[in-house]
Amino acid sequence: MSTQVPMTVKGAEALREELNELKTVVRPRIVADIASAREHGDLKENAEYHAAREQQGFCEGRIQEIEAKLSNVQIIDVTKMPNTGKVIFGTTVTIVNCDTDDETTYHIVGEDEADIKKGKISIGSPIARGLIGKSLDDVVTITTPAGNVEFEIIEVQYI
């Protein structure tokens, strides 16, 4: 039994674009590279051939991985939900550190979409797990490498 993979609309779109790119651009290029390398003769000592075959293996593996994720995807579009102030998958949350008054905004997304530099954190991250289910103005304690830190949720956006 397969488990559902939660994903935002943008995350699913990005995966579909990557899949299309792999199938229509990368795969044909690798096939052409293999054909070209075969023309050079002896395959045992043909580095270009072996490199192209290795690329082909990575490409096919990534195609299978994306197709598997897309077949089990559960797209969650928070823009179509009423904003109740509750932190759920797909929301954008602004929190403030109760000790330092540092303000941070995170978008809670699926594992494939996470990019801390863009403020996107995985649903499985300690911060997201600590925020899920909480509401606007709640104070949450999140365990960090530096110890427990208290944050107050000051904004929850369904965007």
Rank of each mutant, 00 (worst) to 15 (best):
V109P: 04
A146I: 14
F89M: 13
V140T: 05
F58S: 05
V139A: 10
A51P: 06
A32C: 05
A128D: 02
K69L: 12
Q56W: 05
K44W: 02
L136F: 03
G124Q: 13
E45R: 14
R38V: 07
S36R: 15
G119L: 08
T91F: 11
K118A: 15
A128F: 03
E65T: 10
I76R: 13
A47F: 09
T143I: 11
F89S: 09
A47N: 10
V149T: 15
N83R: 10
T94F: 06
K117P: 00
D99T: 15
S125F: 04
F89Y: 11
C59H: 04
L136Q: 04
A68G: 12
I116C: 06
S71V: 04
K117N: 13
E48V: 07
R62Q: 05
E39I: 08
K134P: 01
V78C: 11
V73G: 10
G119R: 05
G57S: 09
T94Q: 12
I121L: 03
K69V: 09
E111M: 09
K80C: 10
S135F: 08
P82A: 10
Q55M: 01
V87W: 12
G110D: 03
V93P: 00
A32R: 09
K44V: 05
A52T: 04
A114Q: 04
G130W: 00
R62I: 00
Q64Y: 01
T141H: 03
E60I: 06
E103M: 14
K69H: 02
S36P: 07
L70F: 06
L70N: 05
A37L: 08
E103I: 15
V139E: 15
K120A: 08
T144D: 07
I34M: 13
N46P: 01
L136I: 07
S125Q: 06
K69S: 03
E54V: 04
A51I: 08
